[in-house]
Write a protein that binds this DNA or RNA. Structure first.
Length: 306
DNA sequence: CGGAGTAAAAGGCACTT
DNA sequence: AAGTGACTTTTACTCCG
């Protein structure tokens, strides 16, 4: 990841130095002399470009850090504190009570706006990811509900919004059996695999989500479409897969590999041969994996295979 | 070239410390 | 968060038709 920094117009409000540095990667402008962060909410939401093909998308894609709202009040807010007046005398009675109420409300509104800003950012990220990955809006909605819950459970504190958001989206996909791999989401995300996976795991654990088992069936049509395989072959593949599931031959294996292998068997059975290489490319697995799954399936299901 | 198969390296994941 | 161990996939290679 590249971290671009450049000089910025203006001067530091704290020390007056004109030596301001703009850091794109962190999304902030800081003073080069005293280090004070002057602006920390440079907006960098989704991409400003458009792409019409996957290749173009991949080529144009860059990585940039999201807006950092860790200082949601930009360090400028005043905290009403102490029970003394301006000249240092202790407050009494009515004034003290009033002060307490003020503080309470200030605290509440502050929390609310913090939460609100966090949500705005998270929703933007969910929107961006969903669009990029062509995720149905119902699933996106579910992801935002999950994110809200995660926020209420205080799971986001100390972690990145985009990481938890990507985790929530993956959770929504798994829950609704939407065929998206973790890898796909990670590739679209600003965060790395570890972070997204961690977020996902955390969400599943704390929200006690009961995930349906990863069903290779869901990937059959997806891979078939990508590889240009006919519906007839898909049907045959589905039949093989059902039988395989009945014999518990698919557990613990990469669902993509299993789906690709059944499609391979089905297509040669139907006389519409497709190479393992092509199939592997569509399913994002290697030929070896397809071979291994294929061998396993042929053995377990006693299929006759030339 | 497409495919079968294998050993070794590398990659998840569920677990502990 | 880093280490461990069982397990899976990938890499790289050989051999076959």
């Amino acid at each position: 990841m590249e971290s671009k920094t450049q000089m910025e117009q203006g001067s530091c409000p704290k020390c007056g130095s004109p030596n301001l540095i703009r850091d794109e990667a962190r999304g902030e402008v800081a003073c080069g002399s005293c280090g004070m962060v002057v602006v920390d909410d440079i907006v960098d939401q989704g991409p400003e470009w458009r792409a019409f093909t996957q290749e173009e998308k991949r080529a144009k894609q860059r990585v940039g850090a999201p807006t950092d709202f860790s200082h949601f009040d930009k360090g400028l807010s005043t905290v009403i504190q102490g029970y003394r007046d301006a000249s240092g005398r202790p407050l009494t009675g009515e004034a003290k009570k009033q002060m307490w109420r003020l503080r309470k409300w200030q605290y509440r509104t502050r929390m609310r706006t913090a939460r609100h800003r966090n949500l705005v950012q998270a929703m933007n990220e969910l929107q961006r990811l969903s669009e990029k990955l062509h995720i149905p809006s119902s699933v996106q909605k579910m992801a935002s509900v999950i994110y809200r819950k995660a926020l209420d459970e205080d799971l986001v504190r100390g972690r990145s919004i985009s990481g938890i958001a990507a985790g929530a989206l993956y959770a929504a996909c798994r829950f609704t059996q939407t065929p998206k791999t973790l890898k796909e989401i990670v590739d679209a995300s600003l965060r790395d695999r570890d972070e997204v996976a961690r977020g996902y795991r955390l969400i599943v654990r704390t929200l006690k989500m009961k995930m349906p088992i990863h069903d290779p069936m869901k990937y059959v049509s997806k891979i078939a479409e990508k590889a240009g395989i006919s519906g007839k072959v898909q049907g045959t593949a589905a039949k093989i897969l059902r039988e395989a599931k009945r014999k518990h031959a698919v557990m613990g294996k990469d669902p993509m590999g299993v789906a690709a292998a059944t499609l391979y068997i089905a297509s040669s059975k139907e006389g519409q041969k497709i190479t393992q290489k092509e199939l592997g490319k569509a399913a994002d697995v290697t030929e070896v994996t397809i071979r291994n799954r294929k061998r396993e399936l042929v053995n377990r299901l006693n299929l006759d295979f030339d």
